[in-house]
């Protein structure tokens, strides 16, 4: 192997891969959106169903609050704020990368090979495949709950605080996106393990929609330091709501979201590359 021509090519490769990836992602997504909208009735039904599935979760919370005034010391609007921010981040990540949990199936039935034949990064193709517009259901449901909670919360909504909500949504989306990607990379080895990542995505969402005071300290530590989902909404939301963080971490930790998101994305990218490289050398 001639190594002298390797590095320029690799550097060039990175740049073009990113551009190619975005381009291909956009192409495939547009195609799926078009084909989804061709069957409008079916799309509306699935979107409504997606909305309803998420709404039922919130109905359960409402039913709880029909019996109590506060859960773990948090009022309904406060829980709704956690619910909305977490649901929005997960919804966006699910919309953008939700099809990645099909990777194991693709490895099993051999259709991953087909993606390797096309002049576009495999990641972009897997992520965009079967782009499901119906997932707007979850996003709109979360937005509704979030909007309601914002009007009910006893918080002075300055521009800075609103910006923090936007920032935590972006970081939360990135964190959940990294989890989706890492889970997909894991399926290069365990093709039937698609459900494991549900624990971290949907399970993480179920966790984050309740106040951290509800859970055991060790669990909260786990989602802060091991799988840092706490940065999706807990830490920044606690600051917005003026609540102490149950672990008693220094205040600046609340603003580490972007750094944590970047780190997780980098880790997910490495896991993906490693998984794909493994696939290309073993074919399974």
């Amino acid at each position: 192997m001639a190594d002298h021509d390797r590095w320029p090519a690799v550097r060039e490769g990175w740049r073009t891969a990113a551009a190619q990836g975005l381009y291909a992602y956009g192409l495939i997504v547009r195609m799926w959106v078009r084909s989804t909208l061709a069957y409008r009735a079916s799309f509306v039904m699935m979107a409504v169903g997606n909305f309803a599935a998420c709404a039922l979760d919130f109905v359960a919370i409402l039913l709880m609050f029909s019996q109590i005034d506060a859960l773990g010391g948090f009022t309904l609007p406060e829980v709704a704020f956690l619910y909305g921010t977490s649901g929005l981040s997960l919804g966006l990540a699910d919309l953008l990368l939700g099809s990645m949990d099909r990777l194991g199936r693709r490895v099993r039935d051999g259709t991953l090979d087909v993606l390797l034949l096309r002049p576009a990064p495999v990641f972009a193709q897997v992520a965009a495949d079967r782009f499901a517009l119906r997932r707007l259901g979850r996003i709109s449901q979360a937005l509704l709950v979030l909007g309601w909670s914002v009007t009910r919360l006893d918080v002075d909504w300055t521009a800075g605080r609103l910006l923090l909500v936007v920032l935590m949504t972006v970081c939360g989306t990135a964190i959940f996106g990294a989890v989706f990607t890492t889970g997909a990379a894991f399926q290069f080895w365990a093709q039937d393990a698609a459900e494991v990542q549900n624990s971290f995505t949907y399970g993480g969402n179920a966790l984050l929609q309740y106040p951290p005071t509800v859970f055991a300290k060790d669990l909260v530590r786990g989602v802060t330091f091991v799988v840092p989902l706490a940065f999706v909404n807990w830490l920044p939301a606690l600051r917005l709501l003026g609540r102490p963080d149950p672990l008693g971490l220094p205040g600046w930790v609340d603003f580490l979201g972007p750094a944590v998101a970047a780190l997780m994305c980098a880790g997910a990218a490495l896991a993906w590359r490693y998984g794909l490289r493994g696939y290309r050398s073993t074919g399974s």
Partner: peptide, 14 residues
């Protein structure tokens, strides 16, 4: 685990 903890909080309240 997740649901169990929320139920602990719920039943602590009621």
């Amino acid at each position: 685990f997740i649901v169990a903890y929320t139920f602990v909080a719920l039943w602590a309240e009621r």
